[in-house]
Nucleic acid binder design. Structure first.
Lengths: 245, 245
DNA sequence: TTTTGTGGTTGACGTGGATCAACTTAGCAT
DNA sequence: ATGCTAAGTTGATCCACGTCAACCACAAAA
């Protein structure tokens, strides 16, 4: 423990206009003018340690969250104990939208690593988006994007085979890392094989085998959670051509 | 062709306040006062014949639609021709939300029977929901509900076996028919086995066999598209207990 | 250093659902 | 009625993925 005065959350000026995630996050597409007005929207930041919940299914819904650092998974669990991961979220992405409909969260959000989120009180968001047109539009787009993303996952789960699913997953991760200024070809997965499997509707063994197979075929190099994509065109081809043994 | 003056869409007073679907549709939860103000929102109605498209993937996004009569399916098709049904929509449900994110529709909406929709121009919706608070909230809830529904489908596709999926599907249909004042136990499906299969991530043969099996077990009575649910508790049990052969 | 635990890999085997194919039924036009 | 077509059923076979089980790798604790 140091004896210096800690930097408190309250002491920090939290401002979207200062944040380097603007072009990924809620303010994307808004004018500078409009973004300045957002600064009253983000009340506080909240730190979540690895494996801790940001919220749980059943929690009353009060806010949505913009991820500032780190990453999360969301999952729902069925009565019988089966768990299904419904998504992985990275910096700049908005999490918690599921809670609006019933005013209770319908899934769990768990940090995959030590993370920090901006807390956006829903009541304030409603209020402000009545006045700031750009905010209204962007918020609607964020929700709509989530719907489109979910349809993509449904397609994946409903009509792709194991290796296609994993290839799609890897390309998606790569693309999202790129958007964040990281390498498209080399990255570190924050989730376990089991979590990937749950997301893709597969067992961890199947995920592991598919990774190994991709490696044998020279498409990627895997070492535990570290992935290097060698032949992204090859991965893309896998998705388009339904299975060529 | 009759020689009488046709009843034009323009001639009909289109009003949410008059509509018997209020408690299922966008106005749900809004005050009478607020609902009256919606009447300017619904510009026109549009009739769609069975098998015709309400919109197609790629169409510019201009409006969302509230289903007045009939029903629809939405689907996306992959490059290689595979098709995935992402949802079935009934009266009172809102369709077209996927278009907001990119200002282009990302899926196709096809009428399963002769149907009619209320056209809600998105620009007007934005405008009005800035002034009518209840509308803003309801619209957000509709979008959020769609996200939660999609998570449900992901769970179904990711972690349920064929018979569980079909049982869940039947119970969901039953529940939605009930909400519309129809029998919970007896209804007519508007979609083919292939469409059900596509939605559930199964082949039509598997759907057909599962129907037959449910019938043998005395859970339902099937005759083509006509379904009678005999033992809905039995169906529920099927979902909760992961497979007991 | 050894120990312990969690996550990952790999192999052998079984099975649920896909595939292929034949047949039936219902609806519709003639 | 009769023929035609799209939708549905059912059977036989196959295979992708799940299951079960052994083993390995790495990280944190002792």
């Amino acid at each position: 423990m140091k004896a210096t005065v800690p930097i408190t959350v309250a002491g920090l000026k939290v401002a979207c206009s200062q944040c380097n995630l603007v072009e990924l996050c809620l303010p994307f597409g808004m004018s500078e003018n409009e973004i300045d007005r957002l600064d009253e929207l983000v009340g506080a930041r909240r730190k979540i340690k690895r494996q801790q919940h940001l919220y749980r299914a059943g929690d009353p819904f009060e806010a949505i969250y913009a991820i500032r650092t780190g990453s999360f998974k969301t999952d729902v669990l069925l009565e019988d104990g089966r768990e299904q991961v419904t998504g992985f979220q990275m910096t700049g992405e908005i999490i918690g939208l599921d809670g609006i409909s019933t005013e209770q969260h319908s899934c769990n959000a768990v940090a995959l690593e030590d993370s920090e989120v901006c807390v956006i009180a829903y009541s304030k968001l409603e209020e402000l988006s009545r006045v700031v047109e750009g905010l209204q539009l962007q918020f609607h787009k964020v929700m709509s994007r989530e719907i489109v993303r979910d349809h993509g996952v449904m397609t994946l789960l409903g009509s792709m085979r194991a290796e296609e699913r994993l290839a799609a997953f890897l390309l998606n991760m790569s693309q999202r890392f790129t958007a964040r200024g990281f390498s498209a070809a080399e990255f570190h997965l924050r989730m376990t094989r089991e979590e990937i499997g749950s997301y893709l509707g597969l067992k961890l063994e199947t995920v592991s085998r598919a990774f190994s197979r991709f490696q044998e075929e020279g498409l990627i190099a895997v070492q535990q959670k570290h992935i290097r994509i060698i032949d992204s065109a090859g991965l893309k081809k896998l998705i388009q051509h339904p299975h060529r043994s």
